[in-house]
Amino acid sequence: MSDTILKISNVSKSFGGVKVLENVTFEVEKGNRHALIGPNGAGKTTLFNVISGIHEPDEGRVFFEENDLTQFPSRKRIEKGLSRSFQNIRLMPHLSVLENVMLGQYSRFGIADLLKPLNFSIESTGKIEATETLKRFRIDLYEGRTVSSLPYGVRKKIEVVRALMAKPRLLMLDEPAAGLNTEETDELRKFLNEVSDSGITLLLVDHDMPFVNSLCQQVSVMNFGQLIYNGNVPGLRKDKKVLDAYLGSDD
């Protein structure tokens, strides 16, 4: 049995009396590519927000590598090795591509490094590393430009790269393939495989089943705030609850 990197146990969360998450329990194994799927409004993004600390759960606990993160401030979770992207792209509109990516490194620097001017390419400022990462993922072409004018696919990619720059051990991606064309999706898959090969665990929310199918080893399905399936991808098709959730039950 492999190690567990993330453990959600009995998490519940409601907003104004509406239960968005109900007693959700699941684990993500280290090194895995794990998908979280489910219809709109199933609570996937809320679960992401609970894991990253934007929301505190009403009940239940979140464990990351044996540490209880439930009460841990959201700002410090990235230092622990947990970073994420957002469903609606949230890059900084007035920062250049390079600067956006460098923001991802922020948590790795101590106060002395924070005070070094970035424009002198000193090794310790991280600028060289950021430039090289952009090159590696073939978006260096845009590095000096502000992000708002860039194509959607490129911006999605920058978000993933920004999250990666924190050197996380668990990378959480909220709908990374949404809105991408086939070519871009293929490229993203290749890219995420590379990321996974470097030892980073992936947890991603997505609607694109072929994409999830071809990338992920493990899948969890949510519906109406509850976890209804947890297992491998082929098993999905045979599960009655999942079929009901997606196709509608007969009664």
Partner: peptide, 28 residues
């Protein structure tokens, strides 16, 4: 000088989106 450091970068990030800056580890 200040705006050219990583602190300056964090300041501009807080200007644009403080919630995301916070998740990136910036003490907003």
């Amino acid at each position: 000088y200040l705006m050219s450091t990583r602190i300056g970068l964090a300041m501009r990030a807080v200007h644009d989106d403080d919630a995301v800056a916070n998740l990136m580890g910036v003490n907003t």
